[in-house]
Amino acid sequence: MITVFIEPDNETMTFVRLNTVLMLQRRLGLRVNDALVIRGEELLTPDCQLKDGDQIRVRKVMSTG
C-alpha cells in the first residue's frame, strides 16, 4: 500500500496499485508540474517507480492568494 499526503489540503489517501509517479498524478487529476511529489527528502520525476510501503507527499504549487 502507498500512502499519499496531499498539501495544502491536509488530506491523506492510500493506493494499492501504483507503479509510477505519473500514474499517481493521473489518479489525483494533476498535470506533471502541478505539484511536487516528494519521498523523504527526494523530489520525484514522473517516471520514478513507486513501491509498496512508500510514504509520499504531494505538494500542490499553485498559489491562490
Partner: peptide, 27 residues
C-alpha cells in the same frame, strides 16, 4: 514558473506559509 520556485524552496529547505488566504476563494 510556480513549479520551479516551489522546487527551489523545497531544495533549499525554506519553510513556507502554504495555507491559502481565507478571503481569496473564487478569485
Amino acid at each position: 514558473t510556480e513549479f520551479e520556485t516551489a522546487c527551489y524552496a523545497f531544495i533549499n529547505g525554506i519553510e513556507i506559509h502554504t495555507a491559502p488566504c481565507p478571503y481569496s476563494s473564487g478569485a
